[in-house]
Design a protein around this nucleic acid. Structure first.
Length: 509
RNA sequence: GGUCCGUUCGUCUAGCCAGGUCAGGACGCCAGGUUUUCAUCCUGGUAACACGGGUUCAAAUCCCGUACGGACUACCA
């Protein structure tokens, strides 16, 4: 196995549904792996037992499946570097935490959470920041301050403890980030982070570094919220004597209404989904909408998301996953956070609507027709879809655009009637009906030619007649080319609708 | 408060690293055209380099400062 191979991971914690920012992080990792012929790994970071949410892990996998983002290794796929769930790797974290203590890079701390919270509060009261660091650790209860005997005894008597990293004094840490360039931090502003919790589980920092090392991760591509802990991670790699991976911190997805990063809690508040799939909270039963259920095509969703923070450098905007893979690079990821634009998301979906073939759209449309009590054959639906898809953003909008292909109008739009049903309309449509009844070939070309010839011969206004005609066929003034419509619904149905319309609207005095 | 990161049209962004084109594109919006209608489509328009200083013949681009925004500051990830 070649160590220089590209291996990246997406490492969510199963504390709820994945939001679109998380999906984008997964997507960029996926694209980077594919582009560089590397491996993409899913690791579940479930070290916080208190925040575990049932169904979250399944949700994450299902969401990425829907997006077409595939893993090479992971909880489901397996692989040579498993297990891929941190709760199943528990033993090794303790081992490496102890190793750090033994080598002097970490220490046992016996302060309780309450004691520390209290000290923070007191510091705050005098406008000071409490930092568990080189300045403070000698005043606190830990294996650095306590005599060896005492520490030993506390450990033997099972006194709760954590293992903290001993941040070195006076070090300038320089790290190159693939997105943001060089980042400099002085070690004295860092605090002695907990690596290993009193419940026997590691914190994110330890688990992350240990796993990335043993899973041979070459590039850590994650959200910008991790940037502040990057120095700690770098120090950890050094303490272990391990080569560190390259880092890339992605800009955040921001709330469109102003402040802060997008979060799971935004739910439906924003007027657009923040989740790829619908989520039903297992505790409250509360339902939050998802892009899938809203009618977005996964290709459109992914495409839209990819362009939020990345661009190909040319003016293309519509990309399949494969096409994105060809041109993706971390260099072209932006530095600043982006706001999501619901309008543009709709536009993307519309673009994919137009790209989809009619058969596929018909298959998606049929179940909706069924909900309206309509069973139609595929071929007919395909023809309908081909005529109306350009005027819909979503499959579910198709019904509003195409209902008249499946049933005669039940009423006539009053506004349209007022505008287009004139004194002369009754006689004109009556005559038109006779004309249409006499046509054998009801193809659009043929009926159109015949009607236009008739209009010309009688000196009738095209707009006047055709709009009244449309009104009786459709029920309102909308829809595709009229002669395409009547060809599809057929001569018999056309004549029937004219008859009904003449009867309903009557002769206007 | 502290640390780190960021800032080009309303939004997503190109251009910045290797200073020198009326700052380009897309969404939206507006107007016009096409169409029997609606939509599509086509044409045009709208609108931005956060601010101040410095370097330079020349700065959106390099440097410094300010402002604003964001992330982090848990035995959460």
């Amino acid at each position: 196995m070649n160590d220089s191979k590209i291996r990246v991971r997406f490492a969510p914690s199963p504390t709820g549904p994945l939001h679109i920012g998380g999906v984008r992080t997964a997507l960029y990792n996926y694209l980077f792996a594919r582009k560089n012929k590397g491996k993409f790994i899913l690791r579940i970071e479930d070290t916080d037992q208190t925040r575990f949410v049932p169904g979250a892990e399944e949700y994450i996998i299902e969401a990425l499946d829907w997006c077409g983002i595939r893993f090479d290794e992971g909880v489901r796929e397996g692989g040579d570097y498993g297990p891929y769930k941190q709760s199943e790797r528990k033993a090794m974290y303790r081992k490496y935490a102890e190793q750090l203590v033994a080598s002097g890079y970490a220490y046992y701390a016996f302060d309780t959470a309450e004691e520390l919270a209290d000290m923070r509060k007191k510091s705050e009261a005098v406008k000071k920041t409490f930092i568990y660091n080189a300045d403070m650790r000698h005043q606190l209860k830990n294996s650095l301050t306590l005599p060896g005997e005492k520490t030993k005894k506390l450990l033997e008597t099972k006194t709760p403890y954590v293992i903290r990293f001993k941040i070195p004094q006076e070090r300038s840490i320089k790290i190159n980030d693939l997105v943001r360039g060089e980042i400099k931090v002085r070690s004295q502003v860092l605090d002695d982070k907990v690596l290993f919790k009193s419940d026997g589980m590691p914190t994110y920092h330890l688990a992350n570094v240990v796993d990335d090392h043993f899973m041979k991760i070459s590039h850590v591509i994650r959200g910008e919220e991790w940037l502040p802990s990057l120095p700690l991670h770098v120090l950890l790699y050094e303490a272990f004597g391990w080569d560190k991976p390259q880092f890339a911190h992605l800009p955040l997805l921001l709330k469109p209404d102003g402040k802060g990063k997008l979060s799971k809690r935004d739910g439906d508040r924003l007027g657009f989904p923040v989740f790829p799939l619908q989520w039903i909270d297992p505790k409250t039963g509360e339902k939050t909408s998802g892009y899938r259920e809203e009618g977005y095509f996964p290709e459109a969703f992914i495409n839209m998301l990819a362009l939020l923070g990345w661009n190909p450098g040319d003016e293309r905007e519509i990309f399949s996953l494969d096409e994105m893979t060809q041109v993706f690079s971390l260099e072209r990821v932006g530095k600043s956070g982006s706001r999501f634009d619901p309008e543009k998301a709709k536009w993307f979906n519309h673009q994919y609507m137009l790209k989809k073939n009619n058969r596929e759209l018909a298959q998606m449309f049929m179940p909706l027709l069924k909900n309206h009590g309509i069973i139609a054959d595929t071929e007919y639906v395909e023809k309908v879809v081909s005529l109306v898809k350009e005027r819909a953003h979503f499959v579910h909008e198709l019904w509003d655009q195409a209902d008249f292909f499946f049933k005669a109008p039940e009423s006539y739009d009053p506004k349209a009637v007022k505008k287009r049903w004139k004194q002369f309309s009754y006689d004109q449509i009556t005559a038109l009906k006779t004309l249409l009844a006499g046509i054998d070939d009801f193809s659009p070309e043929n009926t159109e030619a015949a009607v236009k010839k008739w209009l010309e011969e009688n000196g009738y206004g095209m707009g006047a007649v055709l709009n009244a005609f449309r009104l009786l066929i459709v029920g309102t003034l909308k829809g595709p080319h009229l002669f395409d419509i009547i060809a599809l619904i057929g001569q018999e149905e056309t004549l029937r609708r004219l008859e009904t319309g003449l009867h309903e609207l009557g002769r206007k005095e």
